[in-house]
Computed example of a mutant assay.
Amino acid sequence: MAANTTSDHCREQAERCEADAAASDLTEVRDRNLRSAAAWHAMASRQQKSEEARAEKDRLAEAVRQRCLA
């Protein structure tokens, strides 16, 4: 995953794949797009957890900095 990939980006990709699947008349293409959508949803979930952990780490670091400067 690229360094600038966000959970929102992953969700957008999943939605695009789902729309492509819904628009497809070919079973193989529809199935491929649904598999891709599932993979994008999984990446979004993992990325969301990483973003939340990073935000918590930043909050804790800021609290420590404030205590040290007080």
Rank of each mutant, 00 (worst) to 15 (best):
N33C: 08
A22K: 12
A21C: 03
R65H: 04
D8F: 08
L26T: 07
V29K: 10
A39R: 07
T6K: 00
A53N: 10
R35F: 11
D31G: 05
H9W: 14
A14E: 09
C17S: 12
E56C: 03
C17T: 02
E51M: 11
Q47C: 10
N4P: 02
D25M: 13
E28G: 06
A3W: 01
A70K: 07
A39W: 08
A2F: 11
S24H: 06
V29T: 08
S24Q: 09
A21D: 00
T27I: 15
L26R: 07
R30Q: 07
R11K: 08
A21Y: 02
D31A: 14
S45F: 05
A53T: 14
A3L: 15
E18L: 09
A61H: 07
A22F: 08
H41V: 04
M43S: 02
E28L: 06
A42T: 10
K49C: 06
S7W: 03
R54L: 10
A19V: 05
S7C: 07
D25E: 10
A38S: 14
L60F: 13
A63C: 03
A37F: 04
R46H: 05
E28P: 00
D25I: 10
E28M: 12
N4L: 08
S24F: 12
E51F: 11
D25C: 06
Q13P: 00
A61P: 00
R67Y: 14
Q48L: 11
A2V: 03
L26Q: 06
S7I: 03
A39K: 13
A53F: 05
L69Q: 13
A14M: 09
Q13E: 06
E15Y: 06
R35S: 04
R11C: 01
S24E: 05
R67E: 07
R35Q: 13
S7P: 01
L34H: 02
R54S: 13
R16V: 05
R30V: 00
W40G: 00
E56M: 15
A14T: 01
